[in-house]
Design a protein around this nucleic acid. Structure first.
Lengths: 126, 126, 126, 126
DNA sequence: GTGGTCTAGACCACC
DNA sequence: GTGGTCTAGACCACA
């Protein structure tokens, strides 16, 4: 598992939640697979087990994992749901991004151009 | 002034700060123009004057407003600076957006397509 | 045997216990009849044999079944006892129900009306 | 505030939740009124502040209270919502009660009679 | 060993 | 003073 790096501007448990959300949505965590135990994950992320627990409970409320008493937590195996979540999160992300850029006074055309140039720039660096 | 709506996941003063930053950058607040008094602004936004004060002090630290001891606060009239801030903020916004979408497992091409369709969708609604 | 569905808010063995209690009290399990083996029951309910065992031991402690060392477990044939249990459980159920409804601020008259309308509603659906 | 008594068969925070739910639904806690602080409530109930916090967060998720940063928690003032919750909870309670009684082998008519006699019995005691 | 709950005590941002 | 978060450490029921 990757090294966790936390920022100060957001609760740790929410950052953990984001990490798991992205991992599941992107397919990095396979559907139906078992998560490590709360304690193991807590050690890996260098946080208190309670903090990790809080993140996982939240993740469960979203329907992305299910808990099986005494045997552990499992990524949902409902591929469709993961797919729809993926779209939902992406849409929310895009909308908030566009709203912010519009608030800065950029036209939609400008935003598109910006992104294109940003992408090209990155390619040059690689 | 618009109705303010605050979310719970971010300090109010930072949300106010964002509001002013966007207003200045987008030109909604004209360069060189005078801001209402802290009290008036606080009443308009329905927040504690201390909170508004904190946001304005921060805004000043960024160089976007200046205080004139007796006559109030004024938006900077340094057009170039506003312009460079605009670019800076936009770039930061775009980078964080792209990073998140990549974390969700989308390719850059997909992101571009998403944004295009999102923009078209909005046009249809208008 | 019916499909078992378990909830998370109560130990499984207690849910099994409730199932057997209701079955005996309602006459669905005939007095004096033989129960399947722990293993068979566990398979049918898709639970760990230990869990099923625990439920049955509890059931025995209540006096609703008896174990015959070599031939298995049998529902008690003491009809009177079953009958008195039935009354006892019902009374407890009713009292806790009424207490809860009173806690919600309903008068006893209202409770009666609710139940009547609930019953009628169900009849309509059947 | 009443003396709290907790049982062992249910998490304390859920018992606290039930207490608040009943209090709000029954009108004992007036709509729009302010709750005592988490710390005060925790002292009153003789539980750890975190446990009380957990109950209140859950209560908020149900929409029965709202939190105002730095000034405290308030019962919702949406009377209609309270009323609909009242009906919803009552209906759930009744349905589960009837299902259980049916599982015990009682006809609906018998249940009605039981309740009537139970109510009369109580009147005699008072 | 698994998740769930609870306590005790601390720190922080905000108003 | 308010709610929110986090840590450390413990105990329990369950399988």
């Amino acid at each position: 598992m990757k090294e966790f790096v936390f920022t100060n501007d957001k609760p740790i448990y929410l950052q953990l939640l984001d990490f798991f959300k992205a991992g599941i949505i992107s397919g990095e965590f396979k559907e139906g697979s078992r998560l490590d135990s709360v304690r193991e994950l807590a050690v890996a992320a260098k946080v208190n087990p309670n903090t990790m627990q809080k993140a996982l409970v939240e993740l469960e409320r979203l329907g992305l994992v299910r808990t099986e008493r005494t045997s552990g937590r499992f990524i949902t195996d409902d591929k469709e749901m993961i797919e729809s979540m993926k779209k939902e999160f992406a849409k929310a992300e895009i909308e908030s991004f566009l709203a912010k850029m519009q608030g800065y006074g950029f036209s939609q055309k400008q935003v598109l151009e910006f992104i294109e140039s940003e992408i090209n720039e990155k390619e040059d660096n690689e």
